[in-house]
Design a binder for these strands. Structure first.
Lengths: 354, 354
DNA sequence: AATTATACCCAAAACGTTTTGGTTGTCAAG
DNA sequence: CTTGACAACCAAAACGTTTTGGGTATAATT
């Protein structure tokens, strides 16, 4: 690999001049520059990223460092999200460093290593919990970062994030179901360790309240993560006396909804919006949702918009523009709920299942 | 950020000793080491990655640098693949640097930058073409790399790769169709710039030949990439006299098959394996394939096995074990067709559509 | 008592850049 | 003829590690 020294020798100038020529400084003669550039091309010179970094230059790389969930229920969403984020980064001319963080590993260590040691210019967090140590850590490290999701104390902590309004989303679902005549609506929830899961459940409770329904604990499943647990929860609910059974089931994500579609027919229940059928809804609108049988009524998570805004925020922070930025893809469902704190609305996609 | 100097000062030793203590060398007293480790923890010291790199140390990072396709037909596969690769890298304790390479950008530049400048320990290529400049380039740079897919001259070039045997796969499909009575089988192909696409088409031709069928150019679509082009091709084929029409359509990937499922009913044709219906097959077995209506008969691409083997090969190369390695997930469908050249068999998944 | 071995430590070089704080020479203005 | 401005260049420091090639005690061996 050719270095700046090789070029300097060949050109008969100092390495300073080579560096400045290549970086477009004005204090080098145009002829000299052209000669240097020609030699650099000839030698196939490309600057060593590590050396450049060590000088505190930008890496043009951002990290995506989600905490890995033990249950891989969220894996399809992870793949979708990562893919979209990679494409979005590409549009900003950034590389994406994907570093998964295992649960049991020392969280602080991982993020300090990412933040403080010149590997990346900024970090995107995901899988935020109601109370998440990582926020304060990254703030103290003064690394540009944006979270996908928020903690409970987001107002006080004033960190930048993008979140999808799961609560409002599920409330829309409840409204939809209520208007279709449903009065006994069950909630099939995932593990409640992450904020978004709680948020969606919150939407369920608020939705019921708004329509004067009371929450029946027997109609709430939690910590569901695979077909077995869904099946168990469903059986319990459907063992209730006919008039106490749910007529609709709101799932915390598309995968749980998918399991419902698999389990219910086996128990002799039909799924759909007709009277006598059980209505089922999901959350995310993953690519398979529209192909399910019946097609799944769900909330579409605006993944592309999310990634776009995440990157808009992060690149602004990296450039040290602490002021709120304007977004490259302004969205009707976008609200600024604080400085650099963005809330996006999921879209209710009504299909055949509810 | 604390540096090695801060620790040295506090401990009253030289930076050499700090470095060696932290890196587990034997020439430092156990008491000294413990003191140094304690101070390091206290100061929340984490070594600067750039500095370490500059010394030629490993980065524990590998790059995934696919060439971006202009048509995004392959996008769902890209997402799936990237996600699985990230998870696989995680299991090897590696970070994954995703760098998309745009078509029009100077290819050489990108890969030289990745390879020569200490950002990553190795590279995974994808979207290989029959003749692909990148292979020779990376070989000349002496960077560890593995390709997903192969060039035409893979025997001569002797570079490591993992490929899925698209030719054998499609041949299996043809056999399946033939045995179900089909004699007029159409092929709906994507753009043929990438090797795998040609390979699949090759399987189609060979399959026909094996069963004594002759290829009818009117039954071959190429360069299909969206619903419109699929629709046009289909209409042309179905405008043929009844006895010359295809009774089965083999698509080059699941997305094209999906388009077929959308287009055919609108033209008054039913899809399935019954006489009178048109049989449709895909390739990839993306997550949605089983949910299509009718469920798609397709070839399952072993993405997890592919990524596992890619990483087995790459980590071995990084460790300088040029010898073929043993694979952590030995697969029945795995063949070693050359040193470090692995071929995996796709699995025929028969569902309702054919 | 002199030599050798061993344990422990360190100064300086090296990695390849960018940045700092100059110097030198030329030309125009005074 | 002097001064100042400007263009063009450069030596050295800096970034934070690891590695090289030692050194200096102390203990063990002759």
């Amino acid at each position: 690999m050719a270095t700046i020294f090789d070029i300097a020798k060949k050109a008969g100038v100092s390495i300073t001049t080579v560096s400045r020529a290549l970086n477009g400084y004005s204090d080098v003669n145009e002829n000299t520059r052209q000669m240097i550039v020609a030699i650099a091309e000839d030698l196939k010179y490309y600057p060593n990223a590590a050396a450049r970094n060590l000088q505190g230059k930008k890496t043009n790389t951002i990290a995506f460092a989600p905490r890995l969930n033990d249950h891989l229920e969220a894996e399809p969403f992870f793949k979708e999200f990562t893919g979209v984020l990679a494409l979005a980064s590409f549009k900003h001319d950034l590389s994406l460093l994907v570093t998964l963080v295992s649960q049991n590993r020392n969280i602080e260590e991982v993020y300090r290593e990412l933040a403080g040691t010149g590997r990346v210019d900024g970090i995107i967090l995901a899988d935020i919990r109601p109370s998440d140590e990582r926020i304060a850590l990254l703030q103290s490290l003064k690394t540009p970062f944006v979270a996908f999701g928020r903690t409970q104390d987001y107002q006080r902590m004033k960190y930048p994030f993008v979140d999808v309004d799961g609560k409002a989303g599920v409330m829309k679902v409840i409204e939809h179901l209520y208007k279709n005549g449903h009065r006994r609506i069950a909630y099939m929830g995932e593990s409640f360790t992450l904020t978004y899961a709680l948020d969606r459940y919150d939407g369920y409770r608020q939705g019921l309240k708004d329509f004067g329904l009371v929450e029946d604990p027997r109609l709430v499943g939690s910590n569901l993560q695979n077909e077995a647990s869904v099946s168990a929860a469903v059986k319990q609910m459907l063992a209730l006396p006919a008039e106490e059974r749910p007529t609709a089931m709101v799932a915390g994500n598309d995968y749980l909804a998918l399991h419902l579609l698999e389990v219910l027919p086996g128990l002799g229940f039909s799924i759909g919006k007709e009277p006598g059928q059980i209505a089922v809804t999901g959350f995310d609108d993953l690519p398979f949702a529209s192909f399910l049988q019946p097609a799944l009524t769900t909330l579409r998570q605006p993944i592309v918009a999310t990634c776009t805004v995440l990157l808009d925020l992060l690149t602004a922070l990296i450039k040290n523009q602490s002021e709120p930025v304007s977004f490259s893809e302004p969205d009707p469902g976008l609200t600024l709920i604080g400085p650099n704190q963005v809330l996006l609305q999921p879209e209710l996609i009504v299909r055949a299942s509810a």
